[in-house]
């Protein structure tokens, strides 16, 4: 089913990857921690190593919860699949694309 209109209904997506250039939107969800209402959304360079992404983006966000423990972060997943993380691999190398949802347990 598609939109009923009086003209050809054809518009680009508002947040398509192209508009973010060398960056990606990435969501991160801390599973099972209800003090966060939802996953967080970041804009990150595709080439950023995963370790740096965690230290400079994920940790400052997760520290909103004073009980956060960096060492306890584990079980990374991308959507429903396991994500074999490596600190020195870039997000692109790990197969993390635009608007991917990452999950970890803490």
């Amino acid at each position: 089913m598609s939109v009923k209109a009086l003209y050809d209904y054809e518009f680009p997506s508002m947040d398509r990857a192209k508009l973010f250039g060398e960056d990606l939107l990435v969501y991160v969800h801390w599973e099972g921690n209800p003090i966060f209402c939802s996953a967080v959304c970041f804009r990150v360079p595709k080439t950023m190593p995963f370790g740096e992404f965690v230290t400079s983006f994920v940790v400052p966000w997760a520290e909103s919860d004073p009980d956060f423990d960096h060492e306890a972060m584990k079980h990374w997943r991308i959507f429903d699949e396991l994500l074999d993380v490596a600190d020195n691999k870039s997000l692109a190398d790990l197969g993390i694309g635009h608007k991917a949802l990452l999950t970890f347990a803490g």
């Binding site: 209402c37 939802s38 996953a39 970041f42 400052p60 966000w61 520290e63 919860d65």
Partner: peptide, 8 residues
Amino acid sequence: MFVRGLPQ
């Protein structure tokens, strides 16, 4: 506690 970041 406020969330330092933006929600999905």
